[in-house]
């Protein structure tokens, strides 16, 4: 817009809303609603679409299982003893280099009394989120949500190594693999095992304490389904506030 135009507009009398044709007013309002995401079910400030919240409790939604099989893992956290046989099995199965990991064990101390503390170990891995932040940010679609299994997968050939997905991941579950010059991550052993007919991950199979339970959340007869839906059991996910809807569940006992 030129300065002369502005000067000319300033001298003009305001049309006022009452003189604006209703058609035009409606179009303007529609544009505003689209931008603020109201039509997409999002909050006023979101520019991306957000699904309606279906009874989500602390990041867990137990209504729909969009995938078949809907792979998930339940971790019975208090049984973990950090023997790291899961890590060893993962490294061997998926050729994970020394500087990276697809799964690891975190450790913390809990105060259980005035002078008494207790160790707690927490296995972590890719949460195979239903709304994966890593997938949303990938500029080359190198990482994607598998339409059948829901596993967040990598296509190393498409990966340009920008590491944006690493920054976006709320679970620190990705690393840059120097050998393949691409990001690598847990795929629930899809490439190494599931696609070859095996029914569980290497880590779950290696666990001597029955911490890692892998299965199909859409199958009511599966152990994971029964653990997650047990009304007596406290089940939680990590970082529910991110809204990523993870498929890795934690529980005790």
């Amino acid at each position: 817009m030129k300065i002369e135009d502005l000067e000319r507009f300033e001298k003009m009398e305001s049309e006022g809303l009452e003189t604006l044709p209703s058609e035009e007013r409606r179009r303007f309002l529609q544009m505003g609603l689209a931008v603020t995401g109201v039509f997409a079910g999002g909050t006023v400030l979101s520019l991306m679409s957000a699904r309606p919240v279906n009874g989500a409790l602390e990041g867990i939604s137990l209504k729909d299982y969009p995938y078949k099989p809907h792979y998930c893992m339940v971790l019975r956290q208090d049984r973990c003893i950090d023997c790291e046989l899961c890590k060893e099995a993962c490294v061997k199965t998926n050729h994970v280099p020394e500087y990276g990991y697809r799964t690891t064990i975190l450790e913390r101390e809990l105060t259980v009394g005035p002078a008494s503390r207790q160790r707690e170990f927490m296995p972590v891995l890719c949460n195979q989120c239903n709304r994966p932040p890593c997938v949303r940010v990938c500029p080359t679609v190198a990482t994607y949500k598998d339409k059948t299994t829901g596993i967040v997968m990598m296509d190393p050939k498409k990966c340009i190594g920008c590491k944006t997905c690493m920054a976006a991941c709320p679970y620190n579950a990705r690393y840059f693999n120097e050998e393949i010059r691409a990001i690598d991550k847990c795929d629930f052993c899809f490439a190494s095992r599931l696609s070859k007919g095996m029914t569980t991950t290497a880590c779950a199979e290696a666990c001597p304490a029955d911490v890692r339970i892998f299965g199909d959340l859409s199958d009511p007869t599966s152990r994971v389904y029964q653990l997650v839906h047990d009304p007596e059991r406290v089940v939680w996910v990590l970082r529910p506030e991110t809204g990523a809807a993870p498929n890795v569940f934690y529980t005790k006992g």
């Binding site: 208090d78 790291e84 990991y101 064990i105 975190l106 207790q118 160790r119 972590v124 690493m166 620190n172």
Partner: peptide, 24 residues
């Protein structure tokens, strides 16, 4: 479990080996 089980991390500390940190 962890009253007796100190894990690989406990073993590494006991033998003076530094435990590997998570990414980043």
């Amino acid at each position: 479990c962890t009253l007796c089980h100190i894990g690989v991390k406990g073993l590494d500390r006991a033998s003076g080996k530094e435990t590997k940190k998570p990414h980043g």
